[in-house]
Write a protein that binds this DNA or RNA. Structure first.
Length: 573
RNA sequence: CGGGGCGUAGCGCAGCUUGGUAGCGCACCAGGCUGGGGGUCUGGUUGUCGCAGGUUCAAAUCCUGUCGCCCCGACCA
């Protein structure tokens, strides 16, 4: 039994000045966590119990699925990460350090390499597969901007699993098992979430899904079709636009459009000089970028912006994308800022990409590559030809669902889990092979699966808190029951103590507020702030032999005879 | 990387413009009253004023540098 009189806890009356989001504010105020440095937090007793409860649920579900727990160091030598090139690729996000001999080490940001090497060193036969291993470990990433308390930290707790299979079918099966285990896990954690298709990344089109907990303070944006259930990270959202046939459209025509460097100004002048009815959607925006230093132009409808994150995620084989600066325009005098058009792309030395919305056969108003001039009737396929179609335009609420064409909504969420078919990238880089039936070496195929454990604590807090404090689901609360003894006589304290014992005998963990020197008001406020699901008040009602049982979420209260309290409490959990 | 803001007691803040040797609330300690909604009275404890340098008889305050923290933007052709 935890006793408030001796619990290492100090709740704060005021919100900490550096906390913005609810989970951060309340976890600090309620004495769960304390900040040590940007994105680095300590866990106090109540917080650490909660974190371990989340870990326990995850561990139980992983074990139930037949995955085996191992544990790696967080401190790792660089060699394995050099073999997969991540020592370079991770860049400044990687915490690097040297030992006394000058050897390079890192604090693991994720452990694909180590798991791959472990399986390599132990297993060498197809008969050993499949196998799935996991660990719960601290991860270290030197984030450019740690944020929102525990939601994006530089040190955080992650459960990472890796599956190893001989065949693609095997990988599909392992992936499905993890997906099912994640569903069970997040359900038990009391999280609301959507499973959303995510970017498969640069490595060969394998499957990837994210578990997103909807929450206004989340950092991820995703689309959801309420009609058919389609859900996708905006980066992975597919747009389908039918090709048109505007081959018979009139020939291109140059228009005099003075002082129209922006879409808005262009639309105004078009409507003024060339008839009404032009909208931004009729114009074609040519967004110039440098892809690894080479100029490219991305074509999107004028009423859309380019979403750089989507573009980057979908443009494979390119390391770095940068917007054209005035300097870049100066280096390419043929590219007239504000009046760029795709029809002369070859002559101008620009590689053309188009968003799918700029479908083959569509006709546009676009820049004439001359100052103060635009062209109309510029037809895709006749007057210009993109080398590829890539998802680049921003997604808007109401856009058509790729599955059912219904309108999608856009929502924000916290990414709490990510499951991913890695394929053979790491196994190849680190030569993880097993002998097949014919005695031939086969490269193993892998999946990787992550749950943000500490982040899940924050996500649950975000989804369950109210104006007065935290409000945990029973499964992860630091205790199931919070008993508050009030008054100055001994009796309520004795009754509370006894009741605590009875509840513990029923298997319910108890936090007992046995502080003699605090007023009832202080104890009630603390109980609400701390957020244990059932609160039992032992005080006034004791005159009739009763205690008051309150449900933290919703606040319903009822008085029951002391003897009936344990059964009632148990029924509420 | 850019923009904005902030570093003064465990927490929240004032003091800085106009330099004179640090204050308020909460918390904490002692005692009294109160005892079901952060109650009250009296007395107390707590500070390298982020750090370094400079100006000055004198710096929390002015100047320079530096470190740290928070928020916003990572973009509009």
């Amino acid at each position: 039994m935890l006793r408030m009189s001796s619990l290492f806890l100090r709740t704060l009356r005021d919100d900490p000045a550096d906390a913005e989001v609810a989970s951060h504010r309340l976890l600090v105020r309620a004495g769960y966590i304390r900040r040590i440095a940007a994105g680095i937090y300590s866990w106090l007793p109540l917080g650490y119990i909660t974190l371990r409860n989340v870990e326990r649920v995850i561990r139980e579900e992983m074990d139930k699925a037949g995955f085996q727990e191992v544990h790696f160091p967080a401190l790792l030598p660089k060699e394995a990460y050099e073999a997969t090139n991540r020592w370079q690729e991770y860049g400044p996000d990687l915490f690097r350090l040297k030992d006394r001999k000058g050897g390079d080490y890192l604090l693991g940001p994720t452990h694909e390499e180590m798991f791959t090497l472990m399986v390599k060193s132990e297993y060498s036969s197809y008969k050993d597969l499949p196998v799935s291993l996991y660990q719960i470990q601290n991860k270290y990433r030197d984030e450019p901007r740690p944020r929102s308390g525990i939601i994006r930290g530089r040190e955080f707790v992650m459960k990472d699993s890796y599956s190893f299979d001989l065949s693609d079918e095997g990988l599909n099966f392992s992936y499905a098992k993890h997906r099912a285990a994640y569903i069970d896990t997040f359900n038990r954690l009391g999280l609301k979430y959507n499973i959303v298709s995510a970017m498969s990344g640069a490595m060969g089109g394998s499957k990837s899904e994210e578990f997103l907990a909807p929450c206004p303070t989340g950092e991820d944006t995703y689309v959801l079709c309420e009609k058919c259930g389609y859900a996708a990270n905006v980066e992975a959202m597919k747009t389908t636009v039918a090709a048109k046939d505007s081959q018979s459209a009139p020939a291109m025509e140059e228009l005099d459009t003075p002082n129209t460097p922006t879409i808005d100004s262009l639309v105004d002048v078009l409507n003024e000089k060339y008839g009404s009815g032009f909208t931004a959607a009729d114009t074609l925006k040519n967004v110039l970028l440098l892809a690894d230093g080479k100029p490219i132009s991305v074509l999107v409808p004028g009423d859309r912006e380019v979403d750089l994150k989507r573009l980057e995620a979908n443009l494979s084989g390119v390391q770095e994308i940068a917007l054209f600066t005035d300097e870049d325009f100066a280096k390419h005098p043929d590219l007239v800022k504000g009046y760029v058009g795709p029809q002369d792309a070859k002559r101008l030395g620009v590689t053309l990409y188009a968003d799918p919305r700029v479908a083959p056969g569509t006709s546009w108003v676009t820049g004439a590559n001359k100052k103060n001039r635009h062209m109309r009737n510029v037809v895709n396929g006749r007057d210009f030809e993109p080398v590829a179609y890539i998802e680049a335009a921003e997604v808007k609420s109401g856009d058509a669902c790729p599955e059912c064409s219904g309108p999608v909504i856009i929502d924000r969420a916290i990414e709490i889990g990510h499951i991913f078919q890695l394929g053979r990238k790491y196994a190849e880089a680190l030569s993880l092979t097993v002998l097949d039936k014919d005695g031939k070496a086969q490269v193993v195929t892998m999946g990787s699966y992550g749950i943000g454990v500490s982040r899940a604590v924050a996500a649950i807090a975000e989804q369950t808190h109210d104006e007065i404090g935290l409000s945990w689901p029973a499964e992860i609360a630091p205790a199931k029951v919070h008993i508050v003894a009030t008054g100055r006589e001994d009796e309520p304290f004795n009754v509370a103590e006894q009741l605590g014992g009875q509840l513990e005998a029923l298997g319910l963990s108890v936090l007992l507020d046995d502080r003699r020197d605090s007023s009832a008001g202080v104890k009630f406020k603390d109980a609400e702030l701390i957020g244990i699901p059932v609160i039992v008040v032992v005080g006034k009602a004791l005159a009739e032999g009763k205690v008051e049982v309150r449900v933290r979420k919703g606040g319903e209260k009822q008085e029951v005879l002391v003897a009936d309290a344990p059964a009632l409490v148990k029924s509420l959990l």
